[in-house]
Structure formats: C-alpha cells, structure tokens
Write a protein that binds this DNA or RNA. Structure first.
Lengths: 126, 126
DNA sequence: TGGTTGATAAACCTTATGGTTGAATAATGG
DNA sequence: CCATTATTCAACCATAAGGTTTATCAACCA
C-alpha cells in the first residue's frame, strides 16, 4: 500500500502543520468526519481563502486528503502521518530522570577537573 | 508538582520547535544525556550562535532546560512537554477508516455538525 | 446558456524564522 | 588583573508564513 518511508522533510511539514492553532482545530474537526472547505471555514473568523491555504498545508504534510464531490472538495483525515509523528516523539520522550542526575559526571569526564559542585548561580532574570 | 496546563500557545511553540530538523537532531542528541552548547553545535555546519538560538526556541517551548556549570550552560531534555504533544496527537490519530466511508452520506444530509464554538485564533497583531 | 455556488490562484502586505557576523557578558584559571 | 573559554546579545539579511483582496476556474442547475 505505498508505504513510503517518512522523510525528514515529511516531519518538517508535519510538525509545522500542527504548529498552527487553526490547523490543529481543523484536524480536530476532521477527526469527527470529513468536511468541505466551507464547512471547515465556518467557525473561524478568517477568510475561506485562508482556510483553503491551511488545508493545502495539511495536505502537503500528508495529514489530510481531498476528494471530489460535485463542486465541493471534501477533506478527510489521513491518520498515518500522525502516527509517524508520534512514533518520532516516542523515541525521545521516554527519557529517565537519571540522565539529568548524570550531569555532573558527564561534564567531569570531559575536561574540567572541578570536583566542587557549581553553586546555583543561574543568570538573574532581567 | 507544577503541573501547569498545556495551553494552545504551548502547543504552537512545541510543534514549531519540532518542525526544524536541526532542533529535532538536538532533541535526539539530548535524549542520550545532557550536553553543553558547544557540544551540541559541534556536528552541525552552522554557527554556535545559531545553535544557541535553536536551544532558546526549544527552551521556550518547554522541551529543554538549562543549568549552570561553570561557564557552561548544560542543556537537558524535559520530556513532559513531549508527552503532552503525543497526547494531543493521540486524540485524533485513532480515526477509523469507516469515517472516510461515511463521506457521501455526511455530505448528502447537509448537516452542519458540531458547531461547538468559534475559536478566534487569528495571528495576534503587534 | 448563464447565473450561482464552491474553491483556488495571484498579487500583495506584515511579521516571523533561521542564518550570518561582530561585540558583549560571565566565569574560570593563571 | 588578565587572558581564555563558553555563551549570548545585537544588528542585519533573505526567505517563508499567514493573512488580505480581487479575480478566476469548475461544476451544477434553472
């Protein structure tokens, strides 16, 4: 079924697509079923053209697809790319707190012999 | 435990942060343990200042945090925000194929489903 | 056929992003 | 103190992102 590998560019476009709140709302709406551009645009205070552009962004990210229904172009969700994105995140989100604890040791073996621990002199907020 | 709710702006910054391949590589590197800015910058063909800015983006997204170790500012991963992002995606990626099958029926009955609210998510003016 | 509906295209504007270089800041170690 | 190391700040530049408005395309229907 054309299981093309997810590229870096796919992740760029995928995460960029989800970085916009309008597009996240569109995803949420489409998770309840397909909708046309006008239907999707209705709740938003921006123009239909802007929504159309958002849908193009989602489509190029592989998150949605469009079909043809008379004059309308119903949009529906394509969940596979979302799965690939969670798969990416899940590789890195399972980090143990102990890695933070290893901080001093990791830095010590680098170059500096400073055994005395650093005082908590974080930069003063301006 | 400082369990502040994840806001829309948090998701904006979080997904935007992951939309850049350099920052994703930084996340991958940091998932293996903390590192300083110079260490993080070393594999990349761009300036250390650029990496520093990337780290600031990740920090403002809540994905990493910095401590102080002598002159160095070791960076470590903060996995909680990544978890929140997968949680967001997981709400919508579990879409049945049947929803696509319902396409024609949904469009025929001219229903405008789920008019819950109009989210005003316009880009904020300066 | 021609009008209406649904959606996109094109041109444009403003702001954000990601990079650069050069200078400044902070802490360490002679 | 002073030089060195690590990092950030500041100014600048090119391009992309998100919005607008106007115009165009495509398909239905009266």
């Amino acid at each position: 079924m054309t299981e093309r590998a997810v590229t870096e560019a796919d992740l760029n476009r995928g995460f960029m697509a989800l970085a916009d709140p309008v597009r996240r709302h569109l995803i949420a709406r489409l998770s309840r079923g397909p909708a046309t551009v006008n239907e999707l645009a209705e709740p938003f205070p921006i123009s239909t053209q802007a929504i159309s552009k958002h849908i193009q962004v989602l489509e190029q990210a592989g998150l949605v697809a469009r079909t043809r229904e008379a004059q309308r172009r119903p949009v529906h969700l394509v969940p596979e790319r979302l799965e690939a994105m969670t798969a990416w995140i899940d590789r890195y989100r399972l980090v143990k707190e102990s890695q933070f604890r290893n901080l001093d040791r990791l830095l010590d073996q680098d170059s500096t012999p400073g055994r005395d621990r650093a005082p908590d002199t974080r930069r003063r907020p301006s």
